[in-house]
């Protein structure tokens, strides 16, 4: 997949066509996905079809986008080795390595 068109809203009656921005790439659990510069990690994940961003420690239950503005802790991921980073509030950076949190 070269361009981030997965589940992007390319056309919108009010907002117009999706503005062109530089594309960068982030690795999600070792697999590279495209991302739009300036967007949060979670937007790139959703656009690439990654819906489950972590599973809970005790029951292994799936979690994904919930509040989208950093108030809840449902979308915490590991970024470049740093744990518990909110995917909804952290912007992508080319070459960033994201690991979804999985219970053992």
């Amino acid at each position: 997949m070269d361009s981030p068109v997965g589940r992007r809203i390319l056309q919108h009656p009010i907002l117009g066509s999706l503005p062109e921005v530089p594309v960068c790439h982030i690795a999600v659990d070792g697999k590279w996905i495209p991302a739009r510069e300036g967007e949060p990690i979670l937007a790139a994940l959703l656009a690439a079809g990654v819906i489950v961003v972590r599973t809970t420690g005790r029951y292994g239950a799936p979690r994904g986008l919930f509040c989208g503005i950093g108030h809840c802790s449902d979308c915490l991921v590991t970024v470049d080795g740093q744990r518990n980073v909110p995917a909804c509030g952290t912007l992508v950076r080319n070459g960033m390595r994201v690991e979804t949190l999985r219970s053992a």
């Binding site: 809203i9 999706l18 937007a43 919930f66 509040c67």
Partner: peptide, 19 residues
Amino acid sequence: PGVMTAGAAQTFVNLHRVS
């Protein structure tokens, strides 16, 4: 996953342009 607040949906659809 898929159950979210209304605000989360508005943020992702209208700001980040992701369905």
